[in-house]
Amino acid sequence: MTQPSILLDGQPVPFADGQTIMDAAMAADIFIPHLCHHPEFKPQGSCKLCTVKASGRYVSACTMPARDGMEVENNSPDLNDKRRTLLQMLFVEGNHFCPSCEKSGNCMLQALAYELEMLSPHFDQFYPNRPVDASHPEVLLDFNRCILCELCVRASRDVDGKSVFSLSGRGIDKHLIVNAESGRLADSDFSWADKAAHVCPVGVILRKREGFAVPIGKRRYDVEPIGMQVERLAARSAGEAYEDCGEG
């Protein structure tokens, strides 16, 4: 029996039973832009960066199960244009000032903006008021950069068994909260050893007193565009040791 496959931008890509379009693409070293997806966690399907066209319908690659013979459009002007708009939405929704961010060069949001040639934020900035939480002895939370991907939520709940993070609010007022009556990270049982401390794709969860250990220009996505690093992105599932520049 031949292995089932999808046609990804015209190229046959095999998949195993239960795999999504994203799983199949990653295994074949093909890049589908994504932010909320992480091979180690339950698919979430909220950022919509991975939107592809499967059998003529727009779907999220990270949640859509692959079906034999399915024709999937991924790297097309239409889809990349939509993804660029989604990135612009994420940029204006928060407060992102890359030059002063410790995550610059290791940030997936920034890397995707380069990859998809986003030249400006395009929309008017929302400038939300999101105070920083510096209460914890080891870790700083800069909510200004949160893209609400829920990776820390999933990691803390499903791996650490702590549920340190949750989402509250609705719509544009949705925001990340910490599991403490005071709302402060210092009053939760969070620790730097938690998985949740190392999954943020952007610069929210940062180690204190550790700045710019790797100089800007030499960081992960400075060296090579994110679209060329599929193998590394896929390997995140192997539970490999986390590199000290933070996981993304």
Binding site: M89, E93, G171, K174
Partner: peptide, 16 residues
Amino acid sequence: RHESCGFCTPCRVGTS
């Protein structure tokens, strides 16, 4: 805008 649940980027930000 008021009723978007805020789960997905396009609707959360787009409705605003």
